[in-house]
């Protein structure tokens, strides 16, 4: 199983590299994958240029940051979803489950209305939301999972209603609505850098708790008997899941489905051991979002679709197929 898991990780890693190169090549201006690969490598090695400077600009300044941003956002959402499902032992869990997306959405709406920086405002609001939900849920020094989920849903609904009100009253609500659908239109190198740093830190920190999350799957009481400081693990995993989710949402809007389904598919593929499940989810999430975003930006000649629309449109039927194929309990 461990060997199988490692080879899966290797294959996914390879696929991710291929996905980055080929998807950077795809777009309205035709540039071959070979030229693309050369342009990318020329950033680090000396390669005799066989391409035009406009091709180089398109690849390095427009497409590459977008593909990389998609990769980081996909990796973040999928890893956070995996962590939340493991922590909450709930198959419905995704990175947004405890109200973070509603917080980020409200932040973005306020930012559009008051002309504040959208990325910072939505990030801050997402983090504040988690902080509020967590603190509401503390009972006698502990955070019961059920209370956390319910508090998340309640706070989320409340914030969503304020967002709706802002959209209703706004002069031009389109910006907000587009943001809510989730897209990577605004990708640039600055966003890639910030997201890369936050997401990498968060993911590495979550990987460190793979083993503890495994033990937590036995149930909180059992985990305690095995010496796990359950409340500490909850706090830790929530903090870093929230960090990477907020980092992702603040640059991409609400992209659904990645954080729910990719971890499930990977769990079916590699089993519940987080030491393999985590990296598998990270890589698969990145690949999935890069592919769907390329589809979203190229399928129609004149307009780009929001990638959040595409993820569910393609992911859901595939997931339903997997569900039917595997007749056992989904979460086993």
């Amino acid at each position: 199983m461990a060997k199988f898991g490692k080879s899966i990780i290797f294959v996914l890693g390879l696929l991710l590299i291929i996905a980055i190169i080929t998807n950077t090549a795809i777009g309205s201006t035709n540039i071959s994958p070979l030229i693309t690969a050369k342009i990318l490598l020329a950033r680090y090695f000396f390669i005799e240029p066989t391409w035009t400077s406009s091709q180089e600009v398109i690849i390095t300044n427009i497409r590459l940051p977008r593909v990389l941003l998609g990769g980081f956002v996909g990796a973040a959402l999928s890893t956070a979803g995996c962590a939340m499902q493991g922590l909450l032992k709930n198959p419905m869990a995704d990175p947004y489950i405890i109200g973070m997306s509603s917080g980020a959405a409200l932040g973005a709406s306020i930012a559009f209305m008051l002309l504040l920086p959208v990325q910072v405002t939505s990030f801050v609001m997402a983090v504040i939301t988690i902080f509020i939900v967590y603190n509401i849920s503390i009972i006698g020094g502990k955070v019961p999972i059920d209370t956390l989920l319910l508090a998340g849903i309640a706070v989320g609904s409340f914030l969503a209603s304020i967002t709706s009100l802002i959209i209703f009253l706004a002069q031009s609500p389109h910006q907000i609505i587009f943001w809510l659908m989730g897209g990577l239109w605004t990708a640039n190198w600055d966003k890639v850098k910030i997201t890369a740093i936050l997401v990498t830190i968060g993911i590495v920190m979550l990987y460190r708790y793979s083993w503890k999350l495994n033990v937590m799957l036995l149930g909180e009481e059992e985990a305690q008997y095995l010496g796990v400081n359950v409340e500490h693990v909850k706090q830790y995993v929530l903090v870093f899941s929230a960090l990477i989710t907020a980092a992702a949402v603040s640059v991409s809007g609400i992209i659904g489905f990645v954080g729910l389904i990719i971890p499930h598919i990977m769990r079916i593929l590699v089993g519940p051991d987080h030491r393999i499940l985590f990296p598998a989810s990270t890589l698969a999430g990145a690949i999935f979002l890069i592919l769907t975003d390329t589809f979203a930006r190229t399928i129609m000649d004149s307009v780009e679709l929001p990638v959040g629309v595409v993820t569910a449109m393609f992911g859901a039927p595939f997931f339903i197929y997997l569900l039917r194929k595997r007749r056992d309990n989904l979460y086993a």
Binding site: M1, N214, L218, E222, Q224, Y225, G227, D273
Partner: peptide, 25 residues
């Protein structure tokens, strides 16, 4: 908590594990 777990182990009344770990895990 891990100091206690080094000293005290518990076999609970009913254990159900729904995740596909191997016995060795």
């Amino acid at each position: 908590s891990n100091e206690i777990a080094k000293n005290v182990a518990v076999v609970s009344q009913v254990v159900s594990i729904n995740f596909e770990f191997t016995v060795k895990d």
